[in-house]
Design a protein around this nucleic acid. Structure first.
Lengths: 196, 196
DNA sequence: CCCATATGTAAGTATATACTTACATTAATC
DNA sequence: GATTAATGTAAGTATATACTTACATATGGG
């Protein structure tokens, strides 16, 4: 034998670079040439690590989800005057779109004809949804008002609010402050509101 | 002169076909060959009517927005026990995604590097936002509660809810009934809620 | 009928780009 | 230090597809 195979380590190092490239450029404009250049490699070196561009894309989706989720877990662990759900909302309002996860999501939503891409997106949304549903339940602490939507539906609403915040950012429809205010105010309302 | 030019009429006839093609296939898979075939034409005939594929795409965005907006105006005109806003929410909960506008939106969001596409999307979202803001204002009739987000922010939240409903549909994450329920319940909550 | 323009048909081109191949060089293990 | 797999370099290929060109045919107005 000679020279140990370090492919796995290389992959771990490169995935954030790929994810950023897909986030910056979208799927189409993130050509294999561009990806390789950002990685400081040649195209065929990338292809030694992943079998296809699609595989690189799927790896990026998983990575960015994990990245976001671990940030959220961290927020849950720290103590604060606010509830966990409120902390996440505030943090998202302030840091919205930093990872570029949404751009990758848009790119993925354009490729939903591809079963693997579709599955990756499904898993991602499902995980977010489970996570947020738990937070909504914790926030409401069983004090379920008569007219209030159940926690699962509210959770989808909150995810939608986040998507919309990303879109308004992408299209420069709202400035950062207004965007943060939106996520905070409308999000809190969905969390806590009672029917009038 | 000979033979009157009927290009404009042809365009009007064909735009719905193009829009459906983009909605079904997304931008990338809607190749010019596919577009031409669905129109029952050759590619160069399409190119006599529009200068580029992008132009066909932009025309489709405008068309689908107008299509949706006119449906909503119709809903506003009809009388009902419910308020106008409630009527739109219910209708959207039931007919969500029929036009395929959302798929075109996703495709567009992937091409936001292109200034023309970006502008078309901005115009579309702005128009929807203006429209919905008016409905929220009408619904709340100036009875603005202290903790309630202002109507413009709420309107973005409602649009986000609609986007999310489209995504859950696209990825088959929710069945139609639950989806409609989500749009209705969470939407109504955003419209009417008072802080608990 | 004429003729100018619209419409139809059938190729072709140019380019981008995902992916491959061939070969040179390096470096761990024995 | 020899061997062998990993890594680096530089081309090349194959294909898809947006867009074009060349030419034939139809059709309405003078």
């Amino acid at each position: 034998m000679a020279r140990p195979n370090q492919s796995e380590e290389r992959r771990q190092e490169l995935i954030p670079v790929l994810a950023k490239a897909f986030a910056d450029l979208g799927y189409r404009r993130a050509t294999t040439a561009a990806l390789a250049e950002r990685c400081g490699l040649r195209e065929n070196q990338l292809y030694r690590l992943w079998p296809s561009k699609k595989a690189m894309f799927l790896a990026s989706i998983d990575y960015l989800f994990e990245h976001t989720a671990s940030k959220w877990r961290e927020l849950l662990a720290t103590e604060d005057a606010r509830t966990p759900a409120e902390r996440i909302l505030t943090w998202e309002g302030e840091h919205r779109g930093e990872t570029g996860l949404h751009r990758i999501t848009f790119a993925g939503l354009n490729e939903t004809n591809d079963p693997e891409v579709r599955d990756a997106l499904c898993r991602m949304f499902q995980k977010f949804h489970t996570f947020i549903t738990q937070q909504v339940q914790a926030q409401r602490e069983g004090a379920h008002d008569a007219g209030q939507p159940d926690e699962m539906l509210t959770a989808w609403g909150i995810i939608g609010l986040g998507m919309m915040a990303n879109i308004t950012q992408e299209l420069k429809l709202l400035n950062r402050d207004t965007q943060g205010q939106m996520v905070n105010e409308v999000g809190l309302q969905m969390l806590n509101a009672k029917r009038g």
